[in-house]
Computed example of a mutant assay.
Amino acid sequence: MNRQKKISIFSFFSGSGFLDLGFEKTGYDIELVNEISAPFLEAYIYSREKMNLSVPRFGYQNLDINEYFTGQRKELMKHIKEVREENRVVGFIGGPPCPDFSVGGKNKGREGENGKLSMNYVDLIIDMKPDFFLFENVKGLWKTSRHREFYEEFKHKLHSAGYCTTDRLTNSLEFGVPQDRERIFLFGLQKKKLNKTQYQNSEILDFPWENQIRYEMDEIRRVNWPLVDDFNPNKHIICPNECIPELTVEYWFQKNEVYNHPNTYDHFRPRAGLTKMKSISEGDVSKKSYKRLHRWRYSPTAAYGNNEVHLHPYKIRRISASEALAIQSLPSEFELPHDMSLSNMFKTIGNGVPFLLSEGIATTIKEYLSLNKMI
Rank of each mutant, 00 (worst) to 15 (best):
E210S: 06
E219R: 08
Q198L: 04
S202T: 10
E210H: 08
Y215R: 06
D218Q: 06
P233W: 06
V223N: 09
K235V: 15
K196E: 11
N201R: 05
I204W: 06
D230Y: 08
E210G: 01
K193N: 15
C239P: 00
L205F: 06
E203W: 11
F207M: 00
Q200G: 01
Y215Q: 05
K192S: 13
Y215S: 14
Y215I: 13
K235D: 15
K196G: 05
Q198C: 02
S202I: 01
C239A: 10
K235G: 15
H236T: 13
H236N: 08
V223G: 10
R214E: 01
W225N: 04
D218G: 07
K193M: 14
M217C: 07
I220A: 14
R222E: 06
N234S: 12
P226A: 13
P233H: 04
Q200Y: 02
P226H: 13
F231H: 03
N201A: 05
F231A: 09
N195P: 00
N234R: 14
C239D: 05
L205I: 14
E210C: 02
H236E: 13
L194M: 05
I237W: 03
N234D: 15
S202R: 02
R222P: 00
H236W: 10
F207I: 03
I220S: 10
W209H: 02
Q198A: 13
N234V: 02
Q212A: 15
D230E: 14
N195I: 00
R221P: 01
H236C: 04
L227C: 06
I238T: 07
P226D: 01
D230L: 10
R222F: 01
Q198E: 08
R222A: 13
P226V: 06
R221Y: 11
W225S: 02
Q200K: 12
I237H: 08
K191H: 01
K193G: 14
I204N: 13
Y199E: 01
L205W: 04
L205K: 02
N224C: 11
N234K: 13
E216P: 04
V228C: 04
I204F: 09
F207Y: 07
P233A: 03
Y215V: 15
I213R: 14
P240G: 07
C239W: 04
N234W: 05
R221A: 13
R222H: 09
P226C: 08
C239G: 04
V223T: 09
D229S: 06
